[in-house]
Each structure stands twice: as C-alpha cells, then as structure tokens.
Design a protein around this nucleic acid. Structure first.
Length: 598
RNA sequence: GACCCCGUAGCUCAGCAGGAUAGAGCAUCAGAUUCCUAAUCUGAGGGUCGCGCGUUCAAGUCGCGCCGGGGUCGCCA
C-alpha cells in the first residue's frame, strides 16, 4: 500500500507526538496567509492568533472550517467574503484539500480527500496508545495536589471523586506533554490530629478493658478500635494513667501513621498512586513557615493590622484585634488574611503559604490544587499566595470538586452516623470496582454535583456509559479473536499494511474522522484541565462504532469479517484503530479496557 | 451583606480559545435481529440556553445588573 501518511507525514515525534489535523491545517492556512502577505494581497503585521480550524458542528459544512477570513478581514481592511474567496482558492491547491468553499459570513469550509482519513487509521496503528500524545506541556513541570484528606479517618466518597479527578487530570497532563508530580498534603500539623490522638487514646484504654469516654468532639468511629489495639501492642500499658503531655505525641504519631496507611491502601484500590506525600507537620518548628513569611515580608506583603468585621453578618463575639496579615488584596483577594492567631499560633493559612512556597521552590511551572467545593472561599487567597511568592511567574489553578450524591435504586443511601462514618471510598470500590467508580465519577464536570446510583452504574445497558464504552472495546476484541481464528494476521503492524484505501464507505470514513479528533481533544481537555471531556469523547466514539457495526446488518459490505481477506484486513484495521484510541482514552481515565463482557 | 459554583428539552447532563440551523442519554411514540455479541441500532416529537442591557462581523460561551438553587465567610482545619 502506497498510501501517504496524511497526518503522520511528519511522523510521530520523538515522544510519539501526533500533530492534530486541526493544527496541521492551521499551519497550512497560516502559510497561505504569509504567502498572500508576501505577494502584496494582504498587509503585513496581521495577528493570526484568533484564527481557528475546527470541525464544524454541522457535518454538512464539510470536514473542517476556518474563521481566518472573518478575523483578518477588518485589520486587513477587506471584505470578509472577498478575502475568504481568495484564501479558498489558495487552499484548494493543497493536496489534502478536495474542496474549499466560502459559506455564511465568511467561513471557509474544507472538504478533505478520503486518503487523509484513511491515513489516520494507519497513523493510529503505527502510534498505538501513544497516538494523540501532545507536546503541549513541552516538558514543563506541573504539580497536581489532590485528595489531601485529613488523616483522621477513612476516606469517603467525596474524597473518591477528588482522587479520581486529580489522578485523571495528572494522567491527562502527562499525555499532553507535561512532567507531572502527584502530591498529597497530609494535614498532620493541626488540632484535628490531636483530637484523633485523644480519640485513639480512649480506644487504647478500651483495649485494656477500661470503658472509653468518647467525649463530645472526639471521633467516635469504630475504625479507631484497631488503632487502640495497635497502641497496646506497641506501648503495652506504659501510657495508661499518664498525663496527656506524655502520651499525646506518640499516640498521635501511631494513629496518623495508621490512618495514612489505610488511605494509601484505599487510594491503591482506586488505582491512584501519589508521587509525594507532603507532611504539614514538617513545616512546623523547622523554620519553613517563618521563611515563607519572611519572603512575604520582604515583598512588603506582611503587616500588623486590624481587619474590619465581616459586613452584614457580624459574629457575636467579634472584637477588633491586631494581627499579622498577608496583604492578599494586592493579588486579587477581597480582604487581607491573618496568618497568626490571637494566641500566637499560626492560622491554618500560614502552613499553606509555606507549603505553596515549597512547591514553588521545587521549581514547578504550574500548580494545580484539587479541593472540595466547600473550600471555595480559599481559592482567592491561595492564588494570591502563589502570585505573590512567584512574583507572577507561576499560575495556580484550583479545581473545585463538587459533592457526590449516593443513591441505590433512586433512594438516597443512608449514612451511618452512629458508627461515625460516611459511606467510605472502600465500600464503593468494593461494591462496584475501581473501573466503574472511576469512569462514572468522570462523566460529570468537576464543578457540578454528581449522582452516583449503585444500581445504575452496574447496569449492563446503553444507559450506562461505562458499559457502553467497554462494550465497544469488547466487541472489537471479539472481532480480532475471530479474525485470528480464521487465520488472519491481526497484529497492529500487519493491519497497518492493509489496503486502507478500501475504507471508502461514508460510514467508515465517519469513524475515521472521529478518530482524527482525538489528538485535538487531548489538547483541549488538557488545556482546560477537564478530564471529563475524554469520557464524553469516548462515549461519542463508541456510539459511532456501534452505529457502524449495526449498519452491517443491512449492508454486508460493512461487515468486518466478510468480503475476502484483503477487504477484511482493511476493516479490521479500522476497528482495531478504534480500540486503540478507546484504550488510550480509558488509560487517561485510569480504566481498564474490557476484552469481553460478562 | 460579600465572595465562589450552578441555572441549556419533561428528567440527567454535554457544548471544545465566541462561530453557521444549540446536542446526547433517559422518558414517550414508531421501527430494525435466519447475518461478526439486538448488552446494539434507526427514526419522530420535545428549547424565550433563568431575565435584561452591553462588547463583537458573530454570544449558551465574554462584561455589567437582576432572579432562583447550593457553598463559604477573623482566632476550625
């Protein structure tokens, strides 16, 4: 087969980069513009930044559309349609372009030759799961901080969503060329781990046969019984009847370590692995908070002052107080923020400043914090910290993750308050499995609430996007098994050698066009920090495939295994390409592709 | 009172650096199976994109102001 590698004419880059068709055509268009400038048909100095090339919403408008003439017409002092006509004539000379037509207010609609789409199939088979990797990140370093659940108990479903989102975002950014560090901030330095220690101490007493006194404010959860037993195993009776000052630190250390072990294990079951666990405690008594604040002071952003009371609803016990304040208002915050409590201790915000300072010192080019939506009020001040300490060089993107509403058969799942626990992450993963849990949690944008129905997510029907996408992949796997049984060579290398020009049916080309969207989708999703886009794309791709499959019922030409070995090889190559992209997409979501449905 | 998020078909939600006649699933109705998995597919009906101004050649998308829902609001993390 002498099919030109349409998209891959430049070949996959050293890191497997495959330029998206859109950006390749955009380059062609910019080239034409330059040529027109050189030829005096356009004035120099035009800014092409706003020129886009994208598949039109309406397929009837062609394969690709560009707004180039419309955005350049005014600065060039030309009529949009006239400019579009001239550009269309120039573009029609490109070998990939079958037709360039002007439409509407000045769009140029491009129709591409079939071999471009057929070439995509070959490119996918050559690139494998790396096809669609982007150089967008250009090797820059991004830190994605997520989960960061307090080590005071088991993780619940809300944490699961943050974990899945953060992990998928990390995978997406890596696929888009970023060097990614996944990080978990352990809140082990504040009062809440002291509460954990006191709660665990009661369980320790209980393990010695004494009756525990779970006072108001302590954690009542049964999960601390095991911690009590572990404390006995480790310290025997040596901590009994001793003052808190003696046992607090060792009990706290044991309890938090055990909680973190559990958290790590739960994350592991979800398929989430962290690169760094950063201890808040490590910031105290080490001069690191002081260093970060000193930096702020050097920048003139720290001062002693008195805040105005919150307007509207003034707390009863509010009284003016001089505090150490961070002038966050200079970096977009509404009010300046205190870093020291009236008792002289640090506010929660102080270690956060030090923590983000530490991230900056580690040289990241971009920071992402994934937080629960209830932390929305902290976004401004965190951004202010990063803007101030990096002096505007590093951006912080805060992704807020909304809550998960658990239901079963449409009825809300009751939380077990008596045991002091919510529905845990582990319970969810044990019941539905990591793949289902992950996929479902990525079928919504991060900032909208998610309904998670235990019955629905396990349903094997098209109502369930997890199943629907998996089924498409499994159908293709089944196809390849059958082809292999029939003696066909079904390795990607063998399939890439098929005569792809035989894929000339509109239904086949439509599938290939959908595949061609993948590299661009990766970039769009990565740029927006929105992994859910991948899930929606996979659904669309699966839908296209299922539709194509069913067309084979009426049109036998479309059946993958019929029509002779040569034609079958081309069609199986197409199917395999679909499977490759599905599995690449699922890999970003952290979901294992299914080889068969059961 | 201030700030953040949300408001798109009866329901649940997409809508990609603003782009052409706003999409999908569910639900409703009508169809497709001697044939690679019908666990699927095809078609129909269904919309003042919460409301109003503004910016733009072009606004669901950007800005401002309202309305409705949720969240947060100095010494808790």
């Amino acid at each position: 087969m002498t099919l030109a590698r349409g998209l891959g004419s430049a070949g996959p880059g050293p890191r497997g980069d495959a330029m998206s068709l859109s950006s390749e055509l955009r380059a062609v268009i910019l080239g034409r513009i330059e040529a027109m400038v050189a030829g005096g048909d356009l004035p120099a100095g035009l800014d092409p930044a706003a020129v886009t090339v994208e598949p039109p919403r309406d397929a009837g408008h062609g394969d690709m559309a560009t707004n180039a003439a419309m955005v350049l017409a005014r600065p060039a002092g030309l009529a949009p349609r006239a400019l579009a006509e001239a550009m269309a004539r120039a573009l029609a000379a490109d070998p990939r372009i079958a037709a360039a037509e002007v439409a509407g207010p000045g769009f140029i609609n491009l129709r591409l030759r079939p071999w471009v789409w057929q070439g995509v199939v070959g490119d996918v088979l050559a690139g494998g799961r790396d096809w669609g990797r982007s150089g967008l990140g250009a090797g820059r370093r991004v830190n994605v901080e997520f989960v960061s659940a307090n080590p005071t108990g088991p993780m619940h479903v809300g944490h699961a969503r943050g974990a899945v989102f953060g992990d998928a975002l990390a995978r997406l950014l890596a696929f888009a060329g970023w060097e990614v560090t996944r990080e978990y901030y352990i809140n082990d330095g504040g009062a809440q781990v002291d509460v954990l220690a006191r709660s665990a101490y009661e369980r320790y007493r209980e393990a010695h046969g004494l009756s525990p006194e779970i006072a108001e404010g302590l954690y009542p959860g049964d999960y601390l019984i095991a911690v009590g037993e572990a404390l006995v195993a480790r310290f025997g009776a040596s901590l009994l009847d001793r003052p808190e000052a003696e046992w607090l630190a060792p009990v706290r250390a044991t309890a938090t370590a055990m909680m973190m072990d559990q958290i790590r294990e739960d994350l592991g079951r979800l398929g989430v692995r962290m690169d760094v666990f950063f201890s808040e405690k490590s910031l105290y008594g080490t001069g690191r908070i002081e260093a970060a604040l000193a930096r702020l002071r050097d920048l003139g952003l720290l001062y002693e002052g008195v805040l105005d009371p919150p307007r509207g609803k003034t707390p009863e016990d509010w009284e003016p107080r001089e505090q150490t304040l961070f002038r966050s208002t200079l970096h977009g915050d509404d009010v300046d923020r205190p870093v020291r409590k009236s008792d002289g201790g640090w506010t929660y915000f102080a270690p956060d400043i030090a923590y983000h300072f530490d991230k900056l010192e580690r040289g990241f080019d971009l920071l992402v914090d994934v937080l629960g939506a209830d932390h929305g009020g902290y976004v401004r001040r965190l951004k202010a910290v990063v803007a101030a300490l990096s002096e505007g060089r590093v951006a912080l993107d805060v992704k807020l993750v909304q809550l998960v509403r658990l239901t079963r058969g449409g009825q809300p799942v009751k939380m077990s308050k008596r045991a002091g626990t919510f529905v845990t992450l582990r319970e969810v993963v044990d019941e539905v499995g990591p793949d289902v849990a992950r996929f479902v949690m990525l079928t919504r944008k991060n900032d909208v609430a998610l309904d998670f129905d235990f019955d629905r997510v396990l349903e094997q029907s098209k109502d369930n996007p997890v199943f629907y996408v998996q089924y498409a992949h499994a159908r293709i796997a089944s196809l390849l098994r059958k082809a292999a049984e029939a003696g066909m060579a079904v390795t990607d290398a063998a399939l890439a050698g098929a005569d792809l020009a035989l894929l000339d049916h509109e239904s086949e080309l439509a599938l290939a066009r959908r595949l061609a969207e993948w590299p661009r989708l990766v970039e769009v999703a990565a740029r927006a920090h929105e992994p859910h886009r991948v899930a929606f794309y996979l659904y669309d791709l699966a839908s296209e495939f299922h539709a194509h499959w069913t067309r084979g019922n009426e049109d036998t030409r479309l059946r993958f295994l019929e029509g002779g070995a040569i034609a079958a090889a081309a069609r199986i190559a197409l199917a395999r390409a679909v499977a490759v992209v599905i599995s690449a997409g699922l890999a970003i979501l952290g979901v294992t592709p299914a080889e068969e449905m059961r």
